[in-house]
């Protein structure tokens, strides 16, 4: 018992080490939040461009570029993408690793998100687009007012999953020197030679985060469904 308390003391209290966790949590949250926003923007743009091409045969080159983007991102490990961005693309720049992290996870999530949206758009009865066409609505108006809102309700659970995955995936940001939650716990373990508390606490924090997220998504889902 005494050993247990000692480990607890060394992990959190001594030298105010809990601050490391808080700092780590802060970066985890920052990266997760901004890369999620970026991922949604990339995902929606990519899926709409590909859908526009599918419906109208226009924007062929741009659509092909989107295809390649999705193919490459889905075909390579996220860690590799992070390292390439950090050690190759931004090697000589003084850009903050946090930004590199946000960019990596945003670009990565965008590819997956775009596939989720694509499935959503494809899942809408094509009669809905035909009705819009006979009412004289162009592609963008049809997408904005009819297809997108309906697709969003259908894909919401999948989108929630993607966001939760993204939050957990930010844990590899430590590889490029970002002190996020896991890296923070790693630093403390290396000082105390105790792994139990740092790792368990990290796990609990992630669980709490994803629990809250899924609650929020559920609430939003119910709101969306209520409208329909």
């Amino acid at each position: 018992m005494e050993q247990f308390l000692d480990a607890f003391y060394k992990t959190f209290i001594y030298e105010d080490r809990y601050l490391y966790f808080l700092e780590g949590l802060k970066y985890t949250l920052i990266i997760a939040l901004f890369s999620c926003i970026l991922g949604l923007i990339f995902g929606i743009l990519t899926s709409v461009i590909r859908d526009y091409h599918k419906q109208t045969n226009k924007l062929a080159i741009l659509s092909k570029i989107c295809d390649i983007y999705v193919y490459i991102i889905r075909g390579t490990p996220t860690l590799l993408q992070l390292m390439i961005l950090y050690y190759v693309v931004f090697k000589t720049s003084t850009i903050s690793p946090i930004i590199v992290g946000i960019l990596t996870f945003g670009i990565n999530s965008g590819a997956y998100t775009s596939e989720i949206f694509r499935a959503g758009f494809d899942g809408i009865d094509k009669g809905q687009r035909e009705a819009c066409k006979t009412l004289g609505l162009n592609y963008l108006k049809t997408m904005k007012h009819v297809i997108f809102p309906q697709a969003l309700t259908k894909i919401f659970p999948a989108l929630g999953n993607e966001i939760i995955t993204l939050v957990k995936e930010t844990s590899i940001a430590g590889y490029v020197g970002i002190v996020e939650l896991i890296k923070a716990s790693d630093i403390i373990s290396s000082r105390t030679y105790d792994y139990f508390f740092p790792l368990i606490v990290s796990a609990l924090v992630y669980l709490l985060l994803t629990y809250l997220l899924s609650k929020i998504m559920k609430l939003m889902e119910r709101k969306l469904n209520h409208a329909i």
Binding site: G127, A131, L137, H145, V146
Partner: peptide
């Protein structure tokens, strides 16, 4: 050239009034 479909094709995400006034 208006069209009325077999399966109605009302927009499920919009109210009756919004369906009618959207276009």
């Amino acid at each position: 050239i208006g069209m009325v479909f077999q399966n109605f094709q009302l927009f499920d995400n919009l109210t009756v009034l919004e369906n009618i006034t959207l276009a």
